[in-house]
């Protein structure tokens, strides 16, 4: 049993304001008992990573729908490494074609969820992966 709820940063990067998906996921994670830190829209990779560090987050979920995913996801991975925070579970979502998703996973994004992915699958993923990160620390 975890003694405190999992903490997850849900972030929207890029300039598009389509936060419907991010919010539905934030809410599902909250309803699953997690503490969700919502950064709001238009976050730069640097801001997202600083947030995750200060909030001692177990995971970062990043949503991008503007088509800038191949630019922004790798920047977050880079920033996480620079902050010595590569252990934070980094996952993402958006309208991301399969070949891009494959490349992003090679770069270190743990999972990419595309539109239509069931909420429960996402909740299960976060519970499992972020939970794993907690166990060795304890």
């Amino acid at each position: 049993m975890n003694e405190r709820p999992l903490r997850v940063v849900i972030a929207k990067a890029g300039l598009d304001g389509h936060d419907r998906g991010a919010k539905v996921i934030a809410r599902a994670l909250r309803d699953a008992g997690m503490e969700v830190i919502y950064t709001g829209l238009f976050q730069a990779p640097e801001q997202i990573v600083q947030t995750a560090v200060q909030e001692d987050a177990d995971g970062i979920g990043l949503s991008i729908l503007s088509g800038a995913h191949m630019t922004l996801f790798p920047l977050v991975v880079e920033q996480l490494k620079a902050q010595d925070a590569g252990d934070i579970v980094f996952f993402g979502g958006g309208t991301i074609p399969p070949e891009d998703a494959r490349r992003l996973k090679e770069l270190g994004v743990r999972e990419i969820f595309t539109p239509g992915a069931p909420l429960q699958t996402i909740v299960d993923f976060v519970t499992r992966e972020c939970g794993k990160r907690r166990t060795p620390a304890a």
């Binding site: 890029g14 300039l15 238009f42 730069a44 503007s66 088509g67 800038a68 995913h69 630019t71 922004l72």
Partner: peptide
């Protein structure tokens, strides 16, 4: 495109990866 809609020039850091996309 998104940078134009949000009031950023194409060379602004906020525009990275978005110029001419949508």
């Amino acid at each position: 495109d998104m940078p134009t809609l949000m009031g950023y020039d194409s060379d602004a850091p906020q525009s990275r990866g978005e110029v001419g996309k949508c």
